[in-house]
Structures are given as C-alpha cells and as structure tokens.
Computed example of a mutant assay.
Amino acid sequence: MSETTTTPTLPKWSLAVPPAAVLVLALSWGRDLGTILLVLVCLGVAGAVVGAVHHAEVVAHRVGEPFGTLILAVAVTVIEVALIVTLMASSEEGKAASLARDTVFAAIMITCNGIVGLALLVGSLRHRVQEFRAHASSGALGVIAALVTLSLVVPAFTTSSPGPTFSGVQLAFAGVVSLVLYGTFVFVQTIRHRDYFLPKNSTTDEDHADAPTNRTAYTSLGLLLVCLVAVVGLAKTVSPTLEAGVDAIGAPVSFVGVVIALLVLAPETAAAVRAALRDRLQVSLNLALGSALASIGLTIPAIAIASIFLTGPLVLGLDPKELVLLALTMVVSTLTLVQGRATLLQGVLHLTLFSSFVFLAIMP
C-alpha cells in the first residue's frame, strides 16, 4: 500500500473521544452508578460507538472491502468473548450457565434481523430498490445456518450429557467445526472470491477519494480497538443497573444479555446503516452476516476452552421458543438474500422479527 499525501488528517473529535470514553470507564469501574455517573456512562457509550464507526470506516477505506468490515466484526467478537468469559467467571455458580448461549443467540437475532432489517429499511427509503450480490450473502447465510444448528440446536437433542448440553468431546468437536467453517468463509471472502463481497454499486464519490496513509490507518485501528474496549467495558459497568431495571419490569435475567449484546453491536449497526444510506447494501450485509459468523465461529471455540477452567454446566441448547424464532429467521433471511434485490417490504419484515424477539425476551 503506497502512501498518499493529499489525505486529510483525522478529525480532532475522533482523537479525543476514545480516551474520554476510557476515562469514563476508569471513573465508573467497580462503583455504584449514581445519576451523574450513569449519564456519563451513557454519553461514553454513545461517543465510543460513533468513534468506532468512524475509525472502522477509515481502516476499511485503507485496506478496501471486504477486509474493513471483517476487521470490525472480528474485533467486536473478540471483546464480546472476553466479556462473556468475565461474566461467567464472576457470576454465581449455575447463574451464568446459559450466558454464552443467550449472548450468541441474541447476536444472531440482532445481526440477521435487527441490523439487516434496519439497513434494508433506511436504504430502501432513500434508494427505493437496493441491489447486492446474492451468491455472496446467501453463502454466508448457509454457513450461519450450519454453525448455529451445530452449536445451539443439536445440544438440545444430544443424550451423552444431561440437559441441553454437550459432553466434553462433543463440545471440542463443535469448537473445531466452528473454527473450520469460519476460517473457510474468511478465506473465501478475503482471498479466493473477494470480488463476490464487494459493493455492487454506489451513489457517492467516496470510493474515489484518496485512501488514508498507513500512519492514519494504523492510528485509526488502534483507536478502533480502544473504542470497542470502552463500549464493552461500559456495558459491563452499567449491567448491574440494567439488572435492577430488568427486575423492576419483571423480565427474565437473560434479557440483560440482550441489552448488552445491543450495546456491543452498536458500532456495526451504525456502520451498516451509513453504508445502506450510501447505496452500499453489500457492505451492510457483510457487516451483519460477518458479525453473526464471527459471533458463533469464534465464541464457541473460546467458550469450549474456557469451560476447562470454569465450574458448573454450560447450557447451549435453545428452548423451543428460540428454536421457532431461529427457524423463522433462517427461512425469511433465505428468501431475502436469494433475490439479490431488496425493498421496503424486506426491511419491515426483518424488523418485525427482531421486535418479536425483543418482546418475547421481555415477556417469555
């Protein structure tokens, strides 16, 4: 990658927001959140999300698609895994048995219905009909269907261990399969058939702008990681307040995982919406489906390794209600992605499924 001298430097606000968010995290870590701290934490999350989106776009512009969206998806998932393991280690025995399952399932529903639906909605409102590469997106969905079935559906029917769990050997097998499938997808996306995942069209001149310099790209990459750490750390900080709120409305404890997943995936949501507004729906789908793949493909192997050191059962099998929602999501997503074109109807349909997931998570 050659250096360019005409590229403007990073805006001052994008340099100031990440350390400010980390400062808020340091001030609030391990403390009870009063009104002032709670407001600061909320502002810190919002600022970190905006900063993450900006720096991810800088990196994406430098390395090109689909590497840029892959960087954001993997970075978010790695930190998400760290958060899951931390919460499992710090929770009471048995209370966090289903935390990994709930978080991964929430990530699938958020990405495949929430992010995809929102991108389709805002994109179709501005551009009426949006086109994308069906062979790329439908291929990604196929890998998601295989991974989620092997990791979250099959454990509900196995008999080697009691309950919706895997035995040690089964969990190791699921972890290896997840890594193989995810690694194969990344190879196809970034090397073998990279052109399949490039935007089909664009209505802006952004693609023709000078790429940022290597120094700017590396700076943005570092600040992107700082922003992601801040988002996840602040989400963990605010989780006791969320638990109190969840108890107040009578929702199950698992809903806390849904809220935290929403916070963690906020940078990708914002980036996907901005791409859809620029008539770059393929980038939005790369972000959403790539995040879903990374969430399963990296989380399950990491949890399998972490379970060696953690006590208590690891519940992975989904309940019947979640199985129905998952099956409906896969069917609707297939019908959406095989066409290569999307309108307002598909956006509303996916957002309806996402709203049903959130509603049933609160009122099971």
Rank of each mutant, 00 (worst) to 15 (best):
V53R: 15
V76L: 13
I71G: 02
G68C: 06
G44V: 03
F67H: 14
V45L: 15
A46I: 14
V49P: 06
E57P: 05
G47D: 08
V76W: 06
E65K: 12
A60N: 08
G51E: 02
A52L: 03
V74H: 11
T69L: 10
V49I: 14
G68Y: 07
G68F: 04
F67T: 04
G64L: 05
V74F: 12
A75C: 12
V58Y: 07
V41C: 04
H55N: 15
L43K: 07
V74G: 10
T69K: 10
V53P: 01
A75L: 14
G51D: 02
V74C: 08
C42Y: 03
C42D: 01
G51M: 06
V59T: 10
H61P: 00
F67C: 00
A75P: 03
C42P: 00
T69G: 12
L72V: 11
E57D: 14
P66T: 05
V41Q: 02
F67R: 15
V59Y: 03
V53A: 14
G47M: 02
G44S: 07
V63R: 07
C42R: 10
C42V: 14
V76F: 00
V74A: 14
P66M: 10
V63C: 09
G44M: 07
H54G: 00
I71R: 12
G51P: 01
G68M: 05
V58W: 00
E65R: 14
V49C: 02
A73K: 08
A46C: 11
R62E: 03
G51Y: 08
T69V: 12
V76P: 00
A73E: 10
V49Y: 02
V76M: 13
V59L: 13
A48V: 04
A60M: 06
E65A: 14
G44Q: 03
V63T: 06
G51R: 09
R62P: 02
V53S: 12
L72G: 01
V53T: 14
I71W: 13
T77W: 07
R62Q: 05
V45H: 05
V74I: 15
R62D: 02
A52P: 01
H61F: 00
C42G: 15
E65T: 13
L70K: 11
R62N: 03
V58I: 15
V76T: 13
V76R: 02
V45Y: 00
V50S: 06
A48G: 01
V76A: 06
V58P: 04
I71D: 01
V59W: 03
G44E: 10
V49A: 04
V50I: 15
C42S: 14
V59C: 06
A46G: 11
H55C: 09
T77I: 09
G64T: 03
E65D: 13
G44I: 04
E65I: 05
I71K: 12
V58L: 09
G64Y: 04
A73V: 12
T77Q: 13
P66A: 08
A75F: 11
L43M: 13
A48K: 05
A60W: 05
A75M: 12
I71C: 10
L70A: 15
E57A: 11
A56E: 07
V74N: 11
E65Y: 06
A60P: 08
V59H: 02
H55Y: 09
A75S: 15
V41S: 00
L72K: 04
C42L: 15
P66W: 11
E65H: 11
A56R: 04
A46T: 13
A48S: 08
V41A: 00
G68I: 03
V63W: 13
H55W: 10
E57G: 10
C42T: 13
G44W: 06
A48R: 08
